[in-house]
Simulated assay, not measured.
Amino acid sequence: MSTTAEENEPPEIKVSETASEKALALLEEENLDTDTAGLRLFVQQGGCAGLSYGMRFDDSPEEDDTVYEHHSLRVFVDPASIGYIEGSVVEYETGLQAAGFDIENPNVVSECGCGESFRT
């Protein structure tokens, strides 16, 4: 059974209103039900600094996920990733050269030069 963030004690993972709106629009484009589906945020081995972020859409949370909800967007985080990203904020940024999701993670002690991977 998935748990809510309140039942776990780690600092909450937050999602900005802009990021939530963009993710919800993408979920709807994929014909996923925003009442049950959500954004999966995870950490995986890789990159020159050792760890990298991953994001994808899932139909529903896994049994052991922590589930957050911000601005009607559900965010699923697995137990192996939560310690690396607790307290993070997911933003959506636009610029002259690119637009995309960005994670502000207070646990990061160093990042690679390109910013694609990190170490805690």
Rank of each mutant, 00 (worst) to 15 (best):
V90K: 00
L73K: 00
G100Y: 00
G113W: 08
F42Q: 09
E91Y: 11
V89P: 10
P10Y: 13
F57G: 00
G38V: 02
T4G: 13
S60E: 14
I85H: 04
E62F: 07
A19S: 06
C114A: 12
R40G: 00
S81K: 04
I13C: 06
I85L: 07
E111I: 15
E116S: 13
Y53Q: 04
E86W: 03
T120Y: 14
R56G: 06
S88C: 13
T120K: 14
C48K: 15
E69I: 06
E12Y: 10
E30A: 10
N31L: 11
V75E: 02
F57A: 01
G50D: 02
N107Q: 10
D78M: 04
E93S: 13
A19C: 05
G87V: 12
C48L: 15
M55F: 10
G50Q: 08
V77G: 01
A80P: 01
E29N: 11
E17P: 00
E104Q: 13
T94K: 14
G46L: 10
D35W: 09
V108K: 05
T36F: 12
T3A: 14
V77P: 01
A19D: 03
E28R: 15
S60T: 06
E28C: 03
F57R: 01
P11E: 15
Q97S: 10
T4Q: 08
L24C: 03
L73G: 01
G113C: 07
R119W: 04
I13L: 15
I85R: 02
T18A: 15
E104S: 14
S16A: 10
T36I: 14
G46F: 08
G87I: 11
T18L: 14
D102H: 12
N31Q: 12
E6C: 10
E29Y: 11
A19Y: 02
L27V: 05
S2T: 05
D78S: 07
M1Q: 06
E9N: 12
Q44M: 14
R119K: 13
S16E: 07
I82H: 09
A5Y: 12
A99Q: 11
H70F: 13
Y84C: 13
E28F: 03
V108Q: 05
L39W: 03
Y53D: 02
S2F: 14
T18D: 13
A19H: 01
G100I: 00
E12M: 12
K22Y: 07
E7D: 14
S81E: 09
A19N: 03
S81V: 09
S20D: 02
L32H: 06
T66C: 09
N105A: 02
V108D: 04
D78F: 06
A98W: 07
